[in-house]
């Protein structure tokens, strides 16, 4: 690991820690919350990136700052978990009170809807994301080549992820299916137009 200025590293850590403490203070209070305090907390966290970037280079410093911020956050919740007094005994789950699990007749309609949802969020959303990504790739034909490659490599999974959210969203099947299928058709037509 390259040498980093300890002063700048400590400054970055202190700023991130202060930001998290401010957020903890404001979110920990019941009732009134201050928008200014929340902004100050996030602002301190954002500013904590500066010393890290100054201590090294832009991308690497930002990555270290992000890692440090997340570690501080995880540290806080670990501390919260450890210092928590033993809670009241949990209410016995309903299963303990009913001796055997309830058996209901197979619901074919619900099963079919689940299978359709799976197909929609998986393969169909994937094909739609692929056609949209290919359209994007074609549309960027005159862009800087590495930017074009970067765009398609990251757009494909991102579009798939967003479409899978729509595909599983709790709304009528027709609507969900329509969004995914229309996206795919749009991508295919756009690609066809550019080829």
């Amino acid at each position: 690991m390259p040498h980093l200025s300890p002063v700048l590293v400590l400054l970055g850590l202190a700023l991130a820690l202060s930001g998290v403490l401010v957020l903890r203070y404001t979110w920990g209070r019941k009732g009134v919350r201050s928008r200014m305090e929340v902004s100050a907390g996030w602002g301190l966290i954002a500013v904590s990136f500066v010393p890290w970037i100054m201590a090294s280079t832009g991308d690497w410093g930002a990555a270290l700052a992000l890692a440090a911020f997340m570690t501080i956050g995880v540290g806080f919740i670990t501390y919260a978990a450890l210092r928590q007094p033993a809670g009241r005994k949990a209410r016995a789950p309903r299963e303990a009170r009913t001796s055997t699990p309830e058996k209901s007749p197979i619901n074919w309609k619900a099963g079919g809807r689940r299978v359709f949802t799976f197909l929609l969020a998986g393969p169909l959303a994937g094909v739609a994301a692929l056609t949209l990504s290919l359209w994007l790739y074609g549309a960027m034909a005159h862009s800087e080549p590495t930017l074009r490659l970067f765009a398609i490599l990251f757009a494909f999974p991102l579009i798939w992820a967003v479409l899978s959210i729509f595909a599983t969203y709790d709304m009528p099947v027709i609507k969900r299916g329509g969004i995914v299928v229309l996206s795919g058709v749009l991508g295919a037509l756009g690609t066809q137009f550019l080829v």
């Binding site: 919350r33 809670g87 992820a161």
Partner: peptide, 21 residues
């Protein structure tokens, strides 16, 4: 993404850790 959108209080409760109840 859906996890963050599905929990509107996820940031406000960012420090609540109740493991023993």
């Amino acid at each position: 993404i859906s996890g963050l959108l599905a929990h509107p209080r996820i940031f406000r409760d960012a420090f609540a850790m109740r493991l023993k109840g």
